[in-house]
Write a protein that binds this DNA or RNA. Structure first.
Length: 782
DNA sequence: GAGGTTGTAATTTTT
DNA sequence: TTACAACCTC
């Protein structure tokens, strides 16, 4: 640490005092409480770089984990900038990826082989259903059981560790299914997301010698987004970096804990100083992102939560413009108004489309917003987790690939046994399944001699044989082939998946065939990246390694196809490029960790945001608990944090939008304005107390009231009583009426089918357009 | 066994 | 409104 080290000043120069303290912190545990936009990732990456460059810590000694792929990716990118090729020796990944990699190395200790596959949510559900059938349990919803199983796993409990009260029959049933479910996963050489962590923790608990190998290797463990860790993850951290004195650095913000439903426990961060007594605590409260108005609004929302570590963000930035409140008649008007404001901002010229974003609470809200943006010709990208790999045809292809690696995977086999259609129907499948169950073998094994299966006719036996031969051929191919793309290509060829789709001839099937080609493209890209990484690794002389330490990359020796499959399961597709001149649309959860010049937070209504479930839990909570004033349910507290996350994504402009009524699954709902809205002082919106929207009174849906919330045109409120909505009540005689359409211009109504906004209206347009059938809501009178 | 039809239920957030 | 499952028919 001589000051002469040229790296030292470069790594520290643009850090503020607490940031610097965190980077310079020596050995022992450290908790960095890092408010939104306070440079959290910067601190963690600088610290890693500082350890490597100034303290000469070997990069392979450092394990940096986060919760989401996005965060892991960003961390890795920044570390590559700071450390260059040395960054490749670091382990930087999500909890689940890191656990999967370690588990693969140690597979034989936990009853798996190295080629185990990872089941996702829908695979899990299938296994639960089969486990229920096996256990003869029908009284519970498979979904609910799966949820319970997940909770147990998040809490680090195997079936035998479940705490079930003697009289709790449901609990008993859950445990029974859980046990059968685990048996099935093991038999299929498969794990689910929860197993990745739980099996590893169990392994480390039962085999201290194995754990010791990893402790010897990783001298520095750093955790980003620590507020979102669940008990298993925390248990894993404590194993690798045991209290009280290990070099464990956790960075997070209790106010941004938004994964409770997945078992995340805010107490992990709140109680860290107790678990690691003597831990240094550093608070980062200077915000570099948002204008002060935005921070004030966010603070007013979050301060209502009772259990939190007190901190208040401040900014040297200007106060900036006030927030904008957008009142809309319904969700369609909301979409139109968002589109209009986006275009207006763009015209002003200070903010690019690529630094604008539209947030919503639930994915279901996106459709209407997309429609509105499309109509207004606003380019946008939908930022969603893993849509491509969720498509049915892509999942089918993945199922084949997984079988090539691991033919015992029953869930995958069942998925594709009749895809493309090969005449193996439900009855046959059931007979095969029964046979396999009584013999206690996998389906693949059962198919080795289909003639032994009772009650099958010869045609069925023949088809099953053909299917088994196909799988054998593919499996054999996978064993000799070195590349992922080669395996995908061979699989597509032998299964005729693409061919079958193309032969079908519909537009739909063409798209699906193209998706499969894209899937092949993804595999090719994967191979290229892998080759490039290998070249880079070869060019970079590895750090010195003491003989007693295994410092090999965790992914060493994993065959290409397997690595590709793991990426599909755990990482999904890379995020769509944000920034190519498009507005980003995403859920509030997806927004965490991102920032934009302008943010539109839509659906700010009770039962939408906060979500109806939280609203319900709140009322039970208030009924049952004689709570201290201001106390609220954990669910509601989490919604509040989510709102805080949403607000603090905005750098300069924050538009908060709500609709007076909204149709949610068919039904028209009149929701009160979100409680979070009322927590923000009206002055921050540039409005007076009287202009704060009130809960609309229930009204008859057929007579939409207009101008409900305020009658006069006060300043700064963006009203968007959509003009288009004037056609909502298409009724009576509208023939001859003059109307306007975005694309087709002015025309005259010839006839109308039906009533309401969805009535189909035939319009004669001018300008050579002629007759068109248009949905009424896309027309503007006049 | 395949494919279409009707009925019903369920709608948060993601590794 | 949609998604999915059970059901029915060919």
């Amino acid at each position: 640490m001589s000051p002469a080290n040229p790296h030292e000043s470069a790594l520290l120069e643009d850090l503020n005092a607490p940031q610097r303290e965190a980077v310079l912190h020596g050995d022992g545990p450290l908790l960095v409480l890092s408010g939104a936009g306070s440079g959290k990732t910067r601190v963690i990456t600088r610290r890693v770089a500082y350890l490597v460059k100034v303290h000469d810590v070997y990069p392979w000694r450092i394990l940096a984990v986060t919760f989401t792929n996005k965060a892991a990716r960003e961390m890795r990118e920044r570390l590559v900038q700071l450390l260059g090729a040395q960054a490749n020796e670091l382990v930087v990944s999500t909890f689940h990826s890191a656990a999967a990699q370690i588990l693969r190395r140690e597979a034989e200790h936990v009853g798996l082989t190295r080629s185990f596959v990872i089941y996702d949510d829908s695979d899990q559900l299938n296994v639960v259903k089969r486990a229920m059938r096996e256990a003869g349990i029908e009284s519970l919803q498979p979904r609910e059981i799966l949820h319970r199983i997940d909770q147990e796993k998040n809490a680090a409990r195997l079936p035998e560790h479940m705490q079930v009260a003697p009289g709790d029959e449901r609990g008993q049933l859950v445990r029974k299914v859980y046990a059968a479910y685990q048996d099935r996963l093991r038999a299929a050489n498969a794990v689910d997301f929860g197993d990745l962590l739980l099996l590893l923790v169990t392994l480390f608990r039962t085999r201290p010698d194995v754990l010791e190998n990893y402790r010897r290797r990783f001298h520095h463990v750093l955790v980003d987004e620590f507020q979102d860790t669940n008990p298993v993850q925390y248990a894993l951290l404590k194993q690798l970096a045991p209290p009280p004195s290990a070099n464990l650095v956790v960075v997070g913000d209790d106010d941004q804990s938004i994964y409770r439903w997945r078992g995340a426990d805010v107490d992990n961060i709140l109680g860290f100083p107790r678990q690691y007594p003597g831990a240094r605590v550093v608070k980062l409260e200077q915000n570099y992102r948002s204008d002060q108005n935005i921070l004030d609004a966010a603070h007013e929302v979050i301060r209502k939560n009772t259990r939190r570590m007190e901190k208040k963000l401040w900014s040297e930035r200007q106060r900036g413009q006030t927030l904008n409140l957008m009142l809309n008649r319904d969700e369609r008007a909301e979409g139109q108004e968002v589109a209009r404001q986006i275009l207006a901002l763009q015209r002003e010229g200070f903010i690019k489309l690529s630094s604008m974003a539209v947030f919503y609470r639930a994915n279901a809200q996106s459709r209407v917003l997309e429609e509105a943006l499309r109509l207004a010709r606003v380019p946008y990208t939908l930022v969603s987790g893993r849509s491509f790999y969720d498509r049915a045809e892509v999942r089918d292809a993945s199922a084949y690939l997984r079988l090539m690696v691991n033919p015992r995977s029953d869930a995958d086999l069942l998925r594709i046994i009749n895809i493309p259609a090969r005449g193996i129907g439900d009855t046959t499948v059931e007979r095969v399944t029964d046979f396999a169950n009584t013999r206690g073998v996998s389906l693949y094994e059962a198919l080795s001699q289909p003639e032994l299966i009772p009650a099958l006719n010869s045609a069925a036996v023949k088809r099953l044989k053909g299917f088994r031969n196909l799988l054998e051929s593919l499996t054999a191919f996978a064993q000799t082939n070195e590349e992922a793309a080669g395996a995908v290509d061979q699989m597509l060829r032998e299964t005729k998946l693409v061919e079958t789709l193309q032969a079908e001839g519909s537009d739909e099937s063409q798209t699906r065939a193209e998706n499969l080609r894209e899937f092949l493209g993804a595999a090719q890209e994967f191979d290229l990246n892998r080759a490039a990484a290998a070249v880079a690794a070869a060019a970079n002389p590895p750090s010195e390694v003491p003989p007693e330490v295994d410092a090999a990359p965790l992914t060493a020796d994993v065959p290409a196809l397997q690595a590709f499959l793991e990426q599909i399961s755990l990482v999904g597709e890379a995020d769509a490029e944000v920034g190519d001149g498009r507005v980003a649309l995403m859920t509030l959860h997806a927004a965490k960790g991102l920032e934009f010049d302008a943010v539109f937070l839509t659906g700010m209504e009770e039962n939408v945001f906060p979500h109806s479930r939280a609203v319900k839990s709140e009322s039970t909570f208030l009924n049952e608990v004689a709570s201290a004033e201001g106390e609220s349910s954990e669910e509601m507290a989490e919604e509040r944090r989510l709102c805080y996350v949403g607000f603090t994504r905005a750098r300069k402009r924050l538009f908060v939008s709500l609709a007076q009524c909204r149709s949610l699954f068919g039904e028209l709902r009149y929701n009160a304005p979100s409680r979070f809205l009322r927590d923000v002082p009206p002055a921050l919106f540039g409005i007076s107390e009287q202009e704060v929207p009130e809960a609309p009174k229930p009204m008859v849906p057929s007579t939409p009231r207009k101008r409900t919330w305020d009658e006069d045109d006060g300043p700064r409120i963006d009203r968007s009583y959509s003009q288009a909505s004037d056609m909502d009540g298409v009724s009576g005689d509208v023939r001859g009426m003059r109307v306007r359409h975005e694309q087709f211009g002015v025309g005259r109504v010839v006839s109308a089918d039906g009533n309401g906004p969805n009535a189909k209206v035939t319009v004669e347009f001018g300008g050579g357009v002629g007759l068109k059938r248009i949905i009424a809501r896309f027309l503007i009178p006049g």
